[in-house]
Simulated assay, not measured.
Amino acid sequence: MQLALAILALLVACAAAALAVIGLRRQAAQARRPSAESLPADVHGLRQEVAALRAESGDALRHLSVVRYDAFGDMGGHLSWSVALLDDHGHGVVLTSIHGRSEARTYAKNISGWTCDQQLSPEEEEAIEHARP
C-alpha cells in the first residue's frame, strides 16, 4: 500500500514538473516576442510606410507580356508585336506594332479591368491573358 502511494506521488510530481517546464517555455517565448505596444515609434512608422507602399504598388504597371508574330503570311521574322502593360486590377494599355513590307503601324488601346472597349486582335488578347497574374 505504501509502495503504491509512493509511486502515485512520484507520478504526480513528474506531471507537475512537466507542466512547470511547459509553462516556463511558454512564458519565455512570450517574453522574446515583443508586443505592438512595446515597439519603438519608428517601427510603427516603418510598418505604416510599408503598408502605404504595398497599396501604391497595386497601381504600378507591373504585369507585362509581349507576343511576337507575323502579321502577313508572306513576311517572316516575327517583326510584328503586341505588348500589354497592366496593373494589379487589369488597368493599363496594350500596344501593337504591325510590320509590313513598306511601313509599320502602331496602335494603342486602353484596357480597363482586363477588357477593352475596342475590338482586340487575337495577339492582343493573348498578350493580355499572359500578363494576367
Rank of each mutant, 00 (worst) to 15 (best):
A15C: 08
I98R: 12
R26Y: 09
R25K: 15
A127H: 01
L5Y: 07
H130P: 04
S38C: 08
S65R: 10
A15Y: 11
R62W: 05
K109G: 02
H78L: 15
A52W: 03
R25F: 12
Y107R: 07
G58H: 09
V12K: 11
R68S: 15
A84D: 05
G45F: 03
L11H: 10
L39N: 06
A51I: 09
P40K: 11
L24P: 01
L39I: 06
Q119R: 07
A127K: 00
Y107T: 07
S112C: 04
A52D: 10
A51V: 14
V43G: 00
H91S: 03
L8T: 14
E126V: 00
A71L: 06
A71P: 06
L8M: 06
A15E: 13
C116T: 14
S82K: 03
G58F: 01
L46S: 06
A31G: 03
L95Q: 01
V66E: 02
D74E: 10
S82L: 08
D70Y: 00
L46D: 08
R25T: 01
H99N: 13
W81N: 02
R54E: 15
V93W: 01
A131P: 04
S65A: 15
R132K: 14
A51M: 12
R105Y: 13
Q48P: 00
P40Q: 14
P133N: 10
A18T: 01
L3M: 02
L39S: 03
A4L: 09
E103P: 01
L61K: 10
E103C: 07
R32C: 04
A84C: 15
V83S: 01
V50T: 06
S38I: 05
P122N: 13
A16P: 08
A31I: 04
R54N: 14
A31N: 12
H99I: 03
Q27S: 14
H44D: 04
Q2L: 05
V50H: 05
R26P: 02
R25W: 11
I98D: 12
M1S: 11
Y69L: 03
P40G: 00
A15H: 10
G113T: 13
P122V: 08
A16T: 14
A36R: 13
S38T: 11
D87G: 05
P34L: 09
C14N: 10
A31F: 03
A41W: 13
G92I: 05
S35G: 15
Q119G: 00
S80C: 12
D42T: 02
H78M: 12
W81C: 02
L85H: 08
A4M: 10
L24M: 11
D87F: 10
L53A: 06
P133K: 13
A18C: 07
Y107K: 09
H63C: 04
S35E: 15
A28G: 03
A18M: 12
H99D: 10
P133Q: 13
R68I: 05
R47H: 08
D87H: 12
A4S: 12
G45T: 10
E123W: 03
A36E: 09
S82N: 04
D74H: 03
D42Y: 14
V12G: 14
A31Q: 15
A17Y: 12
A16G: 15
D42Q: 14
T106C: 02
L53H: 04
A20N: 08
W114Q: 09
Q48W: 03
E124C: 04
A51F: 10
L85R: 09
S112L: 06
H130S: 08
